[in-house]
């Protein structure tokens, strides 16, 4: 049985500059995997390549056994790979509910969509209150909830979250990370990119550490949280 997501020797370049220099990792069904690393390590570039917004310079990505080479972004999501982008990227002049429905853009099963809308509102009650409001008027934390809710609306086999806690108040950060933990508990497979390494390692089954385009460490969440190099570099301890 192969992994849900298999990334093999992936390389990605912007022009001549290689931002991702041959990384390999896997995500198994039901797992929460985190990719941590400092700013500029290549985490966002990696996720953009997985979802088809960027084309790799080399290597391969297999999702559910299918080679993603040449599959355009709008078809990748149809395969069950949802990408909740860094910086939230909600559609500001559409309402909260219209944003959520766009997450289910490719689905035709109206009853299933209604169920998932209800699930998103149960997960984030705040969104229910603001369902008819333009998304651009939400606070940063609410926008993050909306971006996550929207990504869940395609009922993904793998949910990729890029820095969901970025720029949020400590309380909001807690709420978002708790929700990620809850999604993981209820069986959603997650690939989490975070700069908040402590929170990410606490909830992940396995973790990879990225530095300047390469994976330099990997292990279980608890292993890495204990590793001395990680504690110094990413957890701010000495």
């Amino acid at each position: 049985m192969s992994a849900l997501l298999e990334v093999d020797d992936l390389r990605v370049a912007y022009g001549k500059v290689e931002a991702v220099k041959g990384i390999s990792f896997t995500v198994e069904e039901g797992e929460a995997v985190t990719l941590i690393g400092t700013n500029g390590a290549g985490k966002t570039t990696t996720l953009h390549t997985l979802s088809g917004l960027l084309r790799p310079a080399g290597g391969s990505v297999r999702f559910r056994g299918e080679d993603l080479a040449g599959v355009p972004a709008h078809r990748v999501v149809a395969l069950g790979l949802a990408h909740c982008p860094e910086g939230r990227h909600i559609f500001p002049s559409l309402t909260v509910e219209e944003n959520l429905f766009l997450g289910a853009y490719l689905r035709k099963d109206a009853p299933g969509i209604a169920d998932d809308l209800e699930r998103a509102y149960t997960l984030f009650e705040r969104l229910r209150e603001r369902r008819a409001q333009a998304a651009g008027t939400l606070s940063g934390g609410e926008q993050q909830m909306l971006a996550m809710g929207r990504a869940l609306m395609c009922r993904p086999a793998l949910l990729m979250l890029d820095e969901p806690s970025m720029g949020l108040s400590p309380i909001m950060m807690r709420k978002i990370m708790d929700t990620v933990a809850e999604l993981r508990r209820t069986g959603t497979t997650i690939l989490l990119v975070e700069q908040n390494a402590r929170a990410a390692l606490a909830l992940a089954d396995r973790a990879y550490v990225m530095e300047t385009g390469r994976i330099v460490l990997e292990g279980t969440g608890t292993e890495l949280a204990r590793a001395e190099s990680v504690r110094k570099a990413y957890l701010g301890e000495d």
Binding site: S51, G52, L53, P72, A73, H74, R75, V77, A78, A82, H83, P85, H89, F91, P92, S93, L94, E98, F101, L102, G103, Y105, L106, R150, C154
Partner: peptide, 24 residues
């Protein structure tokens, strides 16, 4: 309409529209 909303989404943020499955 569904296509009309996809059009608004594409105008506001084309890359994210593609992540929704919209053929921009």
């Amino acid at each position: 309409t569904r296509t009309g909303r996809a059009m608004q989404a594409t105008a506001q943020d084309p890359a994210t529209a593609r992540l929704m499955g919209i053929d921009t």
